[in-house]
């Protein structure tokens, strides 16, 4: 199956109806699944990832829906990244508390492993893709938060440098630096045979 890897944001906005509510619905429909997968890469918890995406959608809708639609994309991913960071911090604190009282931290239940793999007609290829995706996600978690954000936004969401800078709250130059280091580090982590 041929998948559309990057949606042209400008074209998508032009194609949307002039009804603001329908326009917002169309935008959220466009980003919700990939936003969930991005959140899942960092949080590794399906429910938490869903909560974070829901929170980000609500925040965009209530606070920024009046802004021009071309601004929604970087704004949405900025909100999402902030939420992911907040949840990550909260989880660290709760894990420390749990470990102090001798509780389980849930690290053994990796939802990435449990997730259905990439679709494909060839079962062998599907398994290979699933393994490759799991390796990629493990490698992504080895990156610094800024490197991971730059890579995810540029590669998965196809944001340009300026949009990524808005989403990350950093300068264009900083985006380029983080992205370049992220790709270089991924190449080291994934090795020469990953594909």
């Amino acid at each position: 199956m041929k998948l559309s890897l990057c949606i042209e944001p400008g074209l998508a906005v032009e194609e949307m109806t002039v009804n603001p509510t329908a326009e917002l619905d169309g935008f959220l429909r466009q980003v919700e699944a990939s936003a969930f997968r991005i959140a899942l890469v960092s949080l590794r918890d399906r429910d938490e990832a869903l909560d974070v995406v829901q929170d980000a959608m609500l925040r965009l809708a209530t606070s920024y829906a009046h802004r021009p639609p071309e601004e929604w994309r970087p704004l949405f991913y900025r909100i999402l990244q902030n939420r992911i960071r907040d949840w990550g911090r909260r989880r660290k604190v709760s894990r420390r508390i749990l470990s102090f009282f001798g509780g389980q931290d849930g690290e053994d239940n990796d939802p990435i492993v449990a997730m259905p793999g990439p679709r494909g007609d060839d079962p062998a290829q599907a398994v290979a893709d699933q393994d490759a995706m799991a390796a990629l996600e493990r490698a992504l978690r080895e990156l610094s938060a800024k490197q991971r954000e730059a890579f995810v936004l540029r590669t998965f969401e196809c944001l340009d440098v300026a949009q990524t800078a808005v989403a990350m709250g950093v300068s264009d130059g900083s985006v380029k630096t983080h992205y370049s280091r992220a790709v270089s580090r991924l190449r080291e982590l994934l090795g020469e045979h990953w594909s």
Partner: peptide, 19 residues
């Protein structure tokens, strides 16, 4: 590195499609 970017993009798109 271009190869990694392209492959990562494909895998991500497939995993989103397979939700």
């Amino acid at each position: 590195e271009r190869e990694i970017e392209q492959r990562a993009r494909e895998l991500f798109a497939e995993s989103v499609a397979g939700l």
